[in-house]
Design a protein around this nucleic acid. Structure first.
Lengths: 300, 300
DNA sequence: CGTCGATATACTCAAACCGAGTACAAGAAG
DNA sequence: CTTCTTGTACTCGGTTTGAGTATATCGACG
């Protein structure tokens, strides 16, 4: 069997939510996702990565999931990989941690992920960037009905509904249309802060996966502090999904499923009436995380 | 940065449905999944694998999706990989092809996948294997309430409902309990045909993924011939999910979504009244495959 | 002290969806 | 022409879900 030798590395999309903003851990001024060599001293990829992340962030990783393995030849045009005949493989992981915090070696920094994808935040209003994007895409899709239809669908144009789960496909279309980095040349606009190589695509993959995941699995709780109010929980889900939710319905679905229980204490309140504090029910965890636990992600 | 060198290979779970049975392509008498080295002559992993599969099966691959990257150190105990310091990475893919067909180099054969997971087929009756499995698991979980609860949940014991999506978790529990291969020793029973290394686990990953996928994405059509009757479509979904479905409801959901259209012709009939022939609507494909197309997988 | 602003929490209501069952139509086989 | 098998249409009740409304309880401020 020929070759089959490759450079392998791990790359992590580490997410935390602080002050109602979803954040990603980055290096080098925010244009690189944390990555590391594929070492074999640990029993599995997961456990090795987990240890590495904990050394970097100083916090335990609540949830860790393999995202995707990226290995396209033209991944990173600036860094030709065929020189030695071996290819470059990046195994991407999605990790959720409870708090943003400095510490660690490589001066990691947490950044609001909407800095990289400003068009993905629909919590307060339709992002203005969308209008400009729509215009560019229209020009790009001119004469190609399939492209047009797909652009309308992905970006919620012409009365189509916005679907928050399609973050990756949206980014990919923008990349193809030359709107994601300078590669398009010819004076095209660039939206959102670029990252090195395909790191922004990997981040988009993580966002899309997480947005899909929170609807059916109780992973949000990995991002919450020990005790929290229902509104804080809702704000976290909203931060991740980029949508505003309907408060009564959100609460209904939450307590229909017995995912949380009251701690007995009340929040000291930021403004209005004090809210009950809740905690995630760890006992139920195993069974629930298998079955179809649902978090309502619906417009409000 | 240290090492980061690894042996990389691709491994494929190739699925077809023929005569209402889900089949997997295998080599060497059915105990090996098709695999190949990770070559760099193609633009991407996907396209390289696609070409390779088509040369093997003689049929185009309708759908191809990355499954998971397997790289645990103790993946394959018979084949120690630390000898040369490089680790072994398998990038798994799930592929759907339209017909089973011989041809190709390595004398590939298609096998009913329930041969490897007999307890997963609930179409006609509750598999008898489940009783024996339940008994073994009960013994294995004795004194550990978490294990007990999880076993009940995974295998639908004690009145719990069966959930077809949990195929992977079920296999993993059986593996842990020593019921999946001879490794358990001490005269344990072995259920289903074993495969080399972790190939059976990879197959379980593919089955679970496909079962989850068909509920929300119109990928079943990649397994269907050009034109088909509604019952044939239903039988295919049933074959994959391992469940019987409610006919009227299945039909309702199918044509609510405009996924298919009549060809105008009728089936020459296998028994009763001739059925209308339908075809998948290719025009809608792009948009639909993004949105939440639903195929009803419910008991009948 | 009373009102306002803000948040928390409870309740209502209709549309949509979904599981399950029933009834009838149309060809094949005997 | 009866029976079997498959196809197709319809009904019905329960559950889910999106959306709206009403009330409770705090802090702040005049």
């Amino acid at each position: 069997m020929p070759s089959g030798i490759a450079h392998a590395e791990l790359i992590a999309v580490l997410v935390a939510v602080t002050a109602n903003e979803p954040r990603v851990m980055t290096l080098r001024g925010g244009e690189v996702l944390p990555y590391g060599p594929f070492e074999s001293k640990h029993r599995s990829l997961q456990s090795g990565l987990r240890a590495w992340i904990e050394s970097q962030t100083g916090h335990p990783v609540g949830y860790l999931e393999q995202l995707y393995t990226f290995a396209d030849r033209d991944r990173d045009p600036q860094n030709p990989e065929d020189t030695n005949g071996a290819r470059h493989i990046s195994i991407g992981y999605l990790g959720l941690v409870r708090e943003q915090d400095a510490a660690g070696d490589g001066r990691p920094a947490w950044h609001d992920w909407y800095r990289y994808f400003p068009w993905e935040d629909h919590r307060d209003r339709r992002p203005e960037a969308l209008d400009a994007i729509a215009e560019h895409l229209e020009h790009w899709a001119k004469g190609d009905p399939l492209r047009q239809q797909r652009a309308e669908y992905l970006f919620g144009l012409n009365g189509k509904a916005w679907n928050e789960d399609l973050a990756l496909q949206r980014y990919e279309m923008m990349f193809e249309a030359g709107l994601a980095d300078g590669a398009g040349g010819e004076g095209r606009a660039v939206f959102g802060q670029p990252m090195v190589g395909d790191h922004r695509r990997i981040l988009a993959t993580g966002i899309a996966r997480l947005r899909a995941k929170i609807k059916y699995h109780p992973v949000v709780f990995e991002l919450m502090p020990e005790s929290f109010t229902l509104l804080e929980l809702q704000r976290t889900v909203e931060a991740l999904s980029g949508l505003r939710l309907h408060k009564p319905n959100f609460r209904r679905q939450i307590d229909q499923q017995d995912l949380i229980e009251e701690t007995g204490e009340m929040s000291s309140g930021t403004g209005g009436r004090p809210a009950k504090l809740f905690r995630y029910r760890p006992a139920i965890l195993e069974a629930q995380s298998l079955s179809g636990t649902r978090l309502p992600v619906s417009r409000g």
